[in-house]
Amino acid sequence: MLYGIAAAATALVLTALLAAVLRIPVRRLRLVERRRQREVPLSGGLAVVAVTGTVVGTGLWGADVSGAGGLLAAGGAVALLGLADDVWRLRRRVLAAGTAVAAACVVPYGETGVGPGLLAVVWAVGVTLAFRGLDHADGLAGTAGVVTAFGVAACAAVDVMDGIAGLMSVLAAALTGFLLHNWHPARVGLGSCGSMSAGFVIALALVHVRAGFGLGESAGVLFALTALASADAVLVLLARRLGGRSAGRGAGHLAHRLRRLGLTVPGITLLLGLAALSGVLVGVLAHAERVGSGALWWVAGGALVVVLALFRVPVHAADARYRRRSAPHCV
């Protein structure tokens, strides 16, 4: 308990400081993105990855990080892949393939079985790219990451998986430190390095937590905990397949459409953050067997209603203030 509090506080402070310190050198290296006609340095992702890896990897204060070492190493590999994407803008299929290889190395096949384990790899790739897609609006990816990581930490704590609970708590705290600079108007960005690694670690931690449970209910819990990112990805895919949008362009995310309805940027982040929190709460309660599987269907139904409703909102002339570098990180 004391380790968790100390580690989280340390991660929050160090991330906030490091993200600020790295702003100037990162800007000079041209590792930036365009937001609201401004260049935002992508020092946030580097800070989150570095601090999370250091605090958890060194096992400060004698912490038990068993079960988290493999996730941490694989997450570092995905962070490097994301950093390459920030620099060279890699194709989506390259990102998916690299993420799949990393996920395949840490899925607990002994508990899940080969078939469900391979499904977990596919799901982890989807969640990783979905979190990357959320990183298009000030504060959104960070807020979703904080809420989801705390939810996974709670699920791990229920099963006394201290290593994973500690990793998720530190990640959530690091993302909170990043949000101090990323709230609208953003002064630093997360980039693929931070968003992909966060989404990957969250997804695989969930797989470890739910390993050994029934496949159907586990799918419901996993979706509830990542409902925001999943709904956003589904909406974008629907828009591109049914709306004839180019696969590499467009502004069809939840935030873009809510912006078209007149909501402010901070208002959108708060609204979607509350939506993510609602799904996470249901997922945690379902994992702890405090609510039945019917609650999970309500989350899925609510997400479907939102996707279908916002799909009708036109975005072809979406506000340029919500675009970022021709939307290279959209799912």
Results as ranks from 00 to 15, higher is better:
Ala154Arg: 08
Cys330Val: 12
Ala73Pro: 01
Ala295Pro: 02
Gly70Ser: 09
Arg323His: 13
Trp298Ser: 13
Phe150His: 07
Thr176Arg: 00
Gly4Val: 14
Ile24Trp: 15
Val121Glu: 02
Ser195Tyr: 10
Gly59Phe: 09
Glu39Phe: 14
Gly126Met: 10
Thr128Ala: 08
Arg91Ser: 12
Arg132Met: 14
Leu31Pro: 02
Ala318Gln: 10
Gly301Pro: 06
Leu119Gly: 03
Gly163Ala: 07
Ala156Val: 11
Ala47Gly: 06
Glu217Met: 06
Glu217Phe: 06
Ile268Gln: 03
Pro41Trp: 11
Cys330Phe: 05
Leu180Asn: 00
Leu238Glu: 09
Ala165Trp: 04
Gly117Thr: 05
Ala47Gln: 04
Leu46Met: 15
Leu206Ala: 11
Gly283His: 05
Val146Trp: 06
Thr10Gln: 04
Ala309Lys: 00
Val265Gly: 00
Arg321Phe: 05
Thr143Met: 13
Val106Glu: 01
Leu225Lys: 00
Val122Pro: 02
Met168Phe: 07
Val13His: 03
Phe178Lys: 07
Thr128Glu: 05
His329Asn: 13
Pro116Ile: 10
Ala156His: 10
Gly4Cys: 02
Leu285Gly: 00
Leu119Gln: 01
Arg38Gly: 02
Trp298Asn: 00
Glu33Phe: 01
Gly53Asp: 06
Ala157Lys: 05
Ser278Tyr: 13
Val170Gly: 06
Thr52Lys: 05
Val291Met: 11
Asp64Arg: 12
Leu238Gln: 05
Ala318Phe: 14
His329Ser: 13
Leu17Phe: 10
Ala11Glu: 07
Asp85Ile: 01
Ile202Ala: 08
Leu308Glu: 08
Gly283Val: 08
Gly191Asn: 06
Leu81Asp: 04
Ala219Lys: 07
Ala144Ser: 14
Ala50Arg: 00
Leu129His: 09
Asp85Gln: 03
Gly70Ile: 10
Val313Ala: 11
Gly115Ser: 08
Val55Leu: 10
Leu277Ser: 11
Ser197Pro: 03
Met161Cys: 00
His184Glu: 11
Tyr322Thr: 00
Val78Gln: 10
Ala79Leu: 07
Glu111Gln: 15
Arg93Leu: 03
Ala100Ile: 08
Val48Glu: 07
Ser326Trp: 14
His136Ile: 00
Phe213Thr: 15
Val127Met: 10
Ala300Glu: 02
Thr58Met: 15
Gly267Trp: 13
Ala20His: 12
Ser169Glu: 01
Ala275Tyr: 12
Ala227Leu: 09
Ala9Tyr: 00
Asp159Ser: 15
Val209Ser: 04
Arg259Met: 08
Asp232Ala: 10
Ser218His: 06
Gly250Arg: 08
Leu225Phe: 00
Pro314Met: 13
Thr148Cys: 14
Asp162Glu: 15
Val146Leu: 14
Leu238His: 07
Ala11Leu: 04
Phe223Ile: 12
Ala224Lys: 06
Trp123Met: 10
Gly145Asn: 08
His256Asp: 11
Leu204Trp: 05
Ala130Gly: 13
Ala229His: 10
Val26Glu: 02
